[in-house]
Amino acid sequence: DTINITLPDGKTLTLTVTPEFTVKELAEEIARRLGLSPEDIKDTHNGKTLDPSLTLAEYGITPGSTITLEIK
């Protein structure tokens, strides 16, 4: 299953994830792909900052969802 990550420059990154991924694991994968530190990444969905300890499923993030990435 894939989700879309909207980057600060407007580009989109597509990642393969499972509903059990935590937001922290997602940030780590994004950081790895972009050459950043996971601590520099802030993920938001529907205007809410995502708690790193919760899973994508707990936020109702499903395949095809879009998450907005902010760099701290």
Rank of each mutant, 00 (worst) to 15 (best):
L36E: 05
E29P: 00
E39N: 13
S53R: 07
P63W: 03
E29F: 11
I5K: 00
D43K: 14
V17C: 06
P38Y: 14
A57D: 05
T2Y: 12
D51Q: 04
D51E: 06
Y59E: 06
I5C: 04
I41K: 01
T55A: 04
K42Q: 11
V23H: 01
D40Y: 15
L69D: 00
D51K: 04
I5R: 00
V17D: 00
I30S: 00
S37E: 12
L36T: 10
G64R: 00
Y59S: 12
P8I: 08
V17N: 01
T62F: 14
T16Y: 12
T6H: 14
F21T: 15
L26R: 00
N4G: 05
P38F: 15
T68W: 13
N4C: 07
E29N: 04
S53A: 11
T44V: 13
K72V: 11
T14C: 08
H45A: 11
L56A: 01
T66D: 05
S37F: 10
G64A: 02
P52C: 11
N46C: 12
S65W: 05
A27T: 14
T16K: 14
L50V: 09
E25A: 08
T2D: 05
L7V: 04
P38S: 08
T66W: 08
L34M: 07
T66Q: 06
E39M: 15
L13V: 09
E20I: 09
A31I: 05
E20R: 06
G35A: 04
L54R: 14
E39S: 15
Y59F: 08
K24A: 13
P8C: 10
I3L: 08
T44I: 13
D43P: 15
K11W: 12
F21E: 07
R33K: 09
T68F: 13
A57F: 11
E39Y: 07
A31W: 08
D9W: 12
P8M: 10
E25K: 07
D43L: 15
G64Q: 04
I5W: 01
D43H: 15
G64K: 01
L54W: 09
N4P: 01
K42A: 12
E25D: 14
F21S: 12
T66E: 08
I30K: 00
T49V: 15
E39G: 15
P63V: 07
L69I: 14
I71S: 06
R32P: 00
E39K: 12
E25C: 06
I41V: 07
D40G: 10
E70Y: 08
D51M: 03
I3S: 01
R32E: 08
L56E: 00
R32V: 06
D40M: 12
G10K: 04
V17I: 13
I67K: 00
G10T: 02
V23F: 15
T55D: 01
T49I: 13
D43Y: 15
L50I: 14
D51R: 03
I30W: 01
G64M: 03
R32K: 12
V23T: 02
T18L: 05
P38R: 06
N4L: 11
G35W: 03
E25Y: 04
D51I: 04
I3H: 01
I67Y: 04
L26I: 04
N46D: 14
L50Q: 03
L34P: 00
P52I: 09
D40W: 14
G47P: 02
T22I: 02
A27N: 15
L15T: 01
T55C: 03
K48Y: 10
T49G: 08
T22Y: 02
Y59C: 12
I5L: 07
P63C: 04
D43G: 15
K72C: 13
L13A: 03
L13T: 04
I3W: 02
D9M: 03
V23K: 00
N46T: 15
L13K: 00
V17Q: 01
T2C: 08
D40K: 09
E20C: 08
L69C: 12
S37K: 13
L69T: 04
T49M: 07
P63A: 12
E58Y: 11
L54Q: 06
I3F: 03
L50Y: 12
T49W: 15
T22C: 01
S65I: 09
P19F: 05
G64E: 03
T55M: 04
I67D: 01
E29M: 08
S37V: 12
I30E: 00
T68L: 12
I5S: 01
S65N: 06
L36N: 05
G60E: 03
T44K: 12
E70F: 08
